Every structure is written in structure tokens, then in C-alpha cells.
Computed example of a mutant assay.
Amino acid sequence: MPGPNPRPGAYALTFHYSLPDDAWYVELDDLAAGGRTVLTGVVPDEDPAREPTVRYDPVAGHQDIPYDVMRWFLENVEEEIRTSRAWMALRPETVEAIRTLREEYLGVIGDEEVAPVLAGLRGTVPEADLADVMHHAFGRGADGSLPEGP
């Protein structure tokens, strides 16, 4: 888990999802420069073949970023990689099943679609992997249930 912001009044992070890129963006903002984004960590979460990257703002030009701030930024990018791409470390067949479902259903499945999807998965995915597939494809349990919570 990343530590706290080492320079709270000088730098901040912004997290958002880019639909066109199918990726999470972690942006390092320089508050002294009016909140300008100086670095962007791009973490694709749909395609296992796309690697995460870090981009510099070419408009901002050369900018010194303190070591502790750079380390904090990269720790947050690493955490985003770990959480949004965890499913990509599963067995290749499981990864392919998740990727296919995420692409077909865009991460959302209606209650009426759960039973047919589960039936299809049981014919192609080992029972031991069913929970991982349902969780990472739809945020649901192995039985298709939604998590309890507020």
C-alpha cells in the first residue's frame, strides 16, 4: 500500500478511467503550477498484451520532480497495476475467459443473463476457476451473486 503524500501542498494525484484507452490513469499534478499534470501512469486493464506506461507532459517541458514525490507516484501506479490487472496473472485459459467476457459484456451483466453465462462457463472453465472468472469479469460471486455492502 502506498504511503501518504510526501508533499501535500505541492503535489497531488488524480485517478480516472479512460474509456477510449480501456485504461486507468494515475496523474501527478504539480499544485504550484496551477495543478498541471506533469506525469501520467497509464494502466490498461482490458488487454493483457498492453503494458502499463508512464508519460511525461511534453507541453510542460523539463521539470524537476523530487525523488520522494516520484517514488510516491510510482508506488501508486504500481498499486493500480496490481489491483486492476491482478486477473492477468491467472492461468492463460482463465485470463482468456475473463478477457472475452469483459469485452462482450463490458463488465456488466444483468441478473437474467447470469444463469446462461454460468452454464456456458461451466462447460469451458474448471469449477476451481469459476469464482475468479465471475469476480474479475463482473464483480460477482461464483454463483452470480452481487457482493453485499452499503
Rank of each mutant, 00 (worst) to 15 (best):
H135P: 00
E96S: 08
W72Y: 08
P4C: 08
T100M: 08
I81V: 14
P147Q: 07
R91L: 11
H16F: 14
E79S: 14
T53M: 13
I98G: 01
V38G: 00
E112S: 12
L19D: 11
R102D: 05
D22R: 14
L118H: 05
W72N: 00
G141W: 03
D132C: 05
G149W: 09
A86E: 10
E46H: 07
R50M: 12
E127R: 14
G144Y: 01
L74F: 06
H136E: 01
H62T: 13
V26P: 03
T14M: 12
E75F: 13
L19H: 09
P147G: 01
V108H: 06
I109M: 11
L146W: 00
R50C: 07
G34A: 05
Q63C: 13
M1V: 15
G9V: 05
R99H: 06
I65K: 09
R36A: 10
F138L: 12
V69I: 06
T100H: 08
S18T: 10
P92N: 05
S18G: 08
E51G: 09
M88H: 00
G120C: 10
D68G: 10
Y25E: 09
V59A: 10
G110I: 12
D132Y: 01
T83D: 06
T100P: 01
P150M: 07
R102E: 01
R99K: 10
P126T: 08
W24A: 12
P52D: 06
E78K: 15
P20D: 02
P8R: 08
L118P: 00
